[in-house]
Design a protein around this nucleic acid. Structure first.
Lengths: 212, 212
DNA sequence: GCCGCCGTTGACACGATGTCAACGGCGAGA
DNA sequence: TCTCGCCGTTGACATCGTGTCAACGGCGGC
């Protein structure tokens, strides 16, 4: 009996993951607003009504994707953190990892941008809440990197609270990535290539926090 | 006869402005996604179909609001530019003016954010194109301020192309404002008050470009 | 005084979301 | 083994918002 419940639970989880997979595929293909629940259902080979058994509504499904996005981002941050020695190098590399992640998974970045653009932070029971918490996890890696940098003297001490700096850097990097992802043509129109622009911006931020 | 055509043209322009007024009111009140064309029409005291005579679709109306937003922003930038002497002070004050503008007209900032998050830049005949051009106008004020700063020695010369710096600063300031506007509760949850956070961030950016 | 243009509107078609009652298969208990 | 009931699954429905269209009516021109 317990076996059966377990199998059912696994199948349920798998079905859920299949739905999210299908939704991600379509998201990547045509953008979230153009994705309909019917397409998601068809792509996962089940009826639309069943999708609503697994997810409360469309935005709930979106935040399920967002949770994946944030978890992957945190993982990338951790890997990047481990790959560098000095604090300031950790921080800069994490910033670049954010941009690389956005470039590699544009739909993940899009969820992140939507999340950043909407207001509320509800309880942790919902996907949206879990998404927010996973985002905090990722941010905490940045905070740790800044701590290291202030200890080893690569980041100026008078920069203040590490959490404040982490939030500011996140915000700036997000804004830069937003521009780089969506306004590439515009930048080119002003005589700027995207990779050079992002490099330039990272240098600027590095200059803002480096010691001496 | 020409009189009549003129009067009609004026009335048409006025009606158009009334529609945009109504749309702005509702936008401010409940957010763009929750605004329906029917509400806009009712609020402007005309039928929904007539709105479609003045605007191609809902997003066209949105960009008409965006155009107003960008024009006002440019005006604020110009005023701020004139109010300070040294280049770096002009730049910093313009950044703060951006934040103040966002705080004063949250719906204008929201349009701006939506605009930044969407991809295309079409021809200038549409509202969207005009919106983009007005944004360029505002950006050009920043470029001029940076030029002044490089001339008077308040901004480091090795910072490179003024346009590049202007875009980077715009992106960072936008990202910071995005966070400050939408995630105030989150920042507080991390022990950061919004005004202090924005001050802190502006200092950081100032530090990134200042000479010496 | 009649014609025709144009501003204006009600009604329609379409598509998407979210809900619900009902069906059917599979395991549990007699 | 047979039956009951749970639960996964679905088609159909109600609702709402968008964008379009044919038709109406008043006002200026001939």
């Amino acid at each position: 009996m317990s076996y059966i419940a377990e199998r059912r639970s696994e199948e349920k989880e798998r079905r859920r993951a299949e739905i999210v997979d299908a939704a991600e595929r379509l998201y990547l293909e045509k953008g979230w607003d153009a994705v309909t629940m019917d397409q998601v259902a068809k792509s996962a080979r089940l009826s639309r009504a069943l999708v609503y058994v697994y997810f409360a509504d469309k935005s709930d499904l979106l935040f399920a994707i967002g949770l994946r996005a944030m978890q992957l981002l945190k993982q990338r941050f951790e890997e990047t953190f481990a790959r560098h020695a000095r604090g300031i190098d950790k921080v800069e590399a994490i910033g670049r990892a954010y941009m690389a992640w956005a470039h590699e998974f544009p739909h993940y970045f899009d969820v992140c941008a939507r999340f950043q653009a909407h207001e509320v932070r509800p309880d942790a029971g919902t996907n949206e809440g879990a998404c927010a918490l996973a985002g905090d996890d990722a941010l905490s890696v940045v905070v740790r990197a800044i701590h290291v940098g202030m200890e080893d003297g690569s980041i100026r001490r008078d920069v203040g609270d590490p959490m404040g700096l982490a939030c500011a850097l996140w915000a700036c990097t997000h804004g830069i990535t937003l521009l780089a992802m969506n306004k590439g043509k515009d930048l080119a129109h002003h005589g700027l290539a995207v990779p050079q622009f992002t490099n330039y911006s990272m240098d600027l931020l590095r200059h803002a926090m480096k010691a001496g």
